[in-house]
Design a protein around this nucleic acid. Sequence first.
DNA 1: CGGGCCGTTGACACAAATCAATGTCCGTGG
DNA 2: CCACGGACATTGATTTGTGTCAACGGCCCG
Lengths: 252, 252
Amino acid sequence: MIRTVPCNLDGFLDRLNSRSILSDEEQRQILDLPVRVKHAVPNEDFVSLGQQVEHSCFVLDGLVGRFDQNARGDRQITALHISGDMADLHSVVQPRATSALQALSTSTILEIPYPALRALASSYPAIAEAFWRDCTVDSMVLAQWVVNVGRRDGPARIAHLLCELACRYGAKMTNGAVTFMLPMTQIQLADAVGLTSVHVNRCLKVLEDAETTFRKHTVRIKDWDALADLGEFDRDYLQCDQRPDERIRLVQ
Amino acid sequence: MIRTVPCNLDGFLDRLNSRSILSDEEQRQILDLPVRVKHAVPNEDFVSLGQQVEHSCFVLDGLVGRFDQNARGDRQITALHISGDMADLHSVVQPRATSALQALSTSTILEIPYPALRALASSYPAIAEAFWRDCTVDSMVLAQWVVNVGRRDGPARIAHLLCELACRYGAKMTNGAVTFMLPMTQIQLADAVGLTSVHVNRCLKVLEDAETTFRKHTVRIKDWDALADLGEFDRDYLQCDQRPDERIRLVQ
DNA sequence: CGGGCCGTTGACACAAATCAATGTCCGTGG
DNA sequence: CCACGGACATTGATTTGTGTCAACGGCCCG
């Protein structure tokens, strides 16, 4: 079976366009960025802590996590990046890596060299602005993660994360039900919500009372409102349903 | 007693200069930004959730927190801003406020209108870049907060936060000891580390075994290494001792 | 002098971690 | 095709950290 794998930055451009206003020329420049395709296998850092990196990582396909850990070695995921995300755009202006990047499932990464990104950000202020805005949204997600691990119990943490991911994946809702693929294990889920995998397993049973299941890499939410309620989820912060005419362009 | 209160953006410029390279002209432009002085009293939002804001808030003096809360009303601070910080620079490109801002102690805020900030970011790409970089550092701090509340126990959470703040305040170390003013209550500290104030009180007693005390708004760390060890603190992520020649300037 | 906020302490309840064992699934190699 | 191994999921028993509730004390400020 022959399958053509898309190897370009269409997804990156789509992401930028959803929040920022770019001219045709600027959009073309984005798509013309040089990339190197790389395949990342699960449970193996493809960007290590302290490593001297010279490129940003675009997630073409798969699921990527930003990993930190405490002194005991307990891992904590501080960000999840789905396909279409730039995992470390911020490093363009601040290259000292402070977290590792690791694929949660087999993933395809497009490495984009810093020099190219920097040249673009430097020559096209509107592109720099779009990059900055993209980082800002990541930061808002991060703030919600602090609330999640700081002030919610196990079931609520998981419910909130599942809602967040459903929105970011753009999963379709039909009759108040949502289903989407989530290629991660309960162990990884535990690392994202600051619990142990044993407890995550028990919490998932609680979520089944709200008719939400997570089995075989598939999340099935039968009653979105019930889950959002349990996870205290309010999608506003994701800025994912911003209207095109609400977008801002500072430059020009 | 007559006291002249400094009402300008010197501190903001210092902060930007410490991480970014700006020309004389660009520096002048920063200092010429229009400001409106505002005094914020403790425990009262000066930026509310969902409020239509038209300015960023520079903390001239005092201590400011970014507040979120869960459905039960339990509060979670997602960022602390000390004097010299811009509390919501990110809102320049993404103005939908997703958190409230509140002073923890009586504070002096300089409100800087978006139009002025945007005009500057638009006309001077290097300034936009410096703003972006500043937001990036905030984001790294936030990621560490996720690790803190997600994977450390009470005493370690508090130890880590105290170490972070000591570094950000630039507190002087003498003989391995550090002392600095921290104008917040145990209740507010609890909101920052995701614990209850009762438990924070008990954890502070544990820290006294490591010869660190927090009384009357003063943090006294007798043995920095012991506290850093307990809080698993590694100052690298703060980017606060970056050498001037390590600074990056993309533009030009 | 009095009131209120904050800090402190104790008894108790509960959520989550820990430890340990077993079950299930899936890919691999014999 | 089946046996094996390994990663992941599941379950129970127990411990531990933290929350909850309640009371009291100190301190500042009006």
